[in-house]
């Protein structure tokens, strides 16, 4: 198609955040360059047009043509969205990629989002985030009881079940709240991002693993009417560019985490791993919470079932084909 495309797109993360916000500007540059300025999607930084949590709303109602976001933010309206973006004790990134492209992932996401007049394109993917920054040691579940913690999404629900007092502070307030002891702990993002935000200056322990999100997926979401209006060739082009971006994003997210962790250690951050019994208990609660959510929402149940089935058949291969983790 020779039609010009001129869209406005707002991102959920600042383009200064490595492997988180710097992904989508590259996609838009690629699209512009390969089409010789025929496809120009204008990039807006977070909150420039709409509040971050409202990006999907704005796209759905056609006020914005496109957005780049972690669609789990929609969970107040589309409960299953969280399964497409991060699941506690869920799939690993390449497993998610397999489920998305070769399993039912993409089909289900398109079906559920298109009911909401939005077309989702997987366009960014990273591995686990850190388990969080703590000013208290976690040796057993009792240490979670009464903990004041900032934790977003289903992970927060799970900690709440265990007696934590969970808040969802805006990103800009986390630093001070941790420093001042208004909260005891917080999760935010990848080590490279946490380093940039300086959490190591105000929290003692950096806990791993990122049990609450073994993968984090990000989507380019496009208003369905706008998506339908473009040519098949352009749809293909956007899909391809996003597939390339998923690969690049995963690579860049994996590339520098080790360095970031080393740096933060050198600044005095104590890296810790959550004890196995705690992880097992967290997993049990996760099962319970996911089941509760599935009972409440049919789409959630459908997606969860598909993921579980995919994970079960994958497990076979993972156990046999790969070297054991503690080898």
């Amino acid at each position: 198609g020779a039609e010009k495309i001129r869209w406005k797109m707002q991102a959920a993360y600042g383009s200064n955040l490595p492997a988180l916000g710097d992904t989508i500007p590259g996609v838009l540059d690629d699209l512009r360059e390969v089409t010789d300025n025929r496809i120009i999607i204008k990039h807006f930084e977070p909150n420039k047009l709409v509040p971050t949590l409202n990006i999907t709303d704005a796209v759905r109602t056609g006020k914005l043509e496109a957005g780049y976001t972690w669609i789990g933010y929609d969970q107040g309206k589309i409960p299953s969205s969280t399964l497409f973006s991060a699941v506690p004790f869920g799939m690993e990134p390449w497993e998610y990629m397999a489920w998305w492209y070769d399993g039912d992932g993409q089909k289900l996401a398109e079906e559920i989002y298109e009911k909401n007049n939005v077309h989702p394109v997987l366009c960014g993917l990273t591995g686990p985030e850190t388990g969080g920054w703590f000013n208290k040691e976690i040796n057993s579940l009792d240490d979670i009881d009464g903990l004041k913690i900032r934790y977003a999404g289903i992970g927060g629900r799970i900690l709440q079940e265990l007696g934590a007092s969970v808040t969802v502070l805006p990103g800009g307030e986390i630093f001070q709240a941790l420093e001042k002891g208004a909260i005891d702990a917080s999760e935010f993002s990848l080590p490279t991002v946490d380093e940039k935000l300086g959490f190591y200056e105000v929290a003692k322990y950096n806990y791993f693993p990122g049990w609450h999100q073994p993968f984090a997926a990000f989507h380019l979401i496009v208003n369905k009417d706008k998506w339908d209006a473009i040519s098949d060739a352009d749809k293909k082009l956007i899909n391809l560019t996003c597939q390339a971006s998923v690969t690049r994003n995963l690579a860049s997210a994996e590339a520098y985490q080790g360095k970031a962790i080393e740096f933060m250690k050198s600044k005095g951050a104590e890296t810790r791993k959550l004890p196995d019994p705690v992880l097992h208990e967290l997993e049990d609660v996760t099962e319970k919470v996911l089941k509760q959510e599935a009972d409440k929402d049919a789409d959630f149940a459908r997606v969860l079932k598909s993921q579980k089935a995919f994970q079960a058949q994958y497990q076979e291969w993972q156990d046999l084909g790969y070297l054991p983790r503690d080898f």
Binding site: G76, K77, R157, V166, V168
Partner: peptide, 11 residues
Amino acid sequence: HMNEASSAPGG
């Protein structure tokens, strides 16, 4: 329509 609730746990 969408039965919107807070996305914060316990909201």
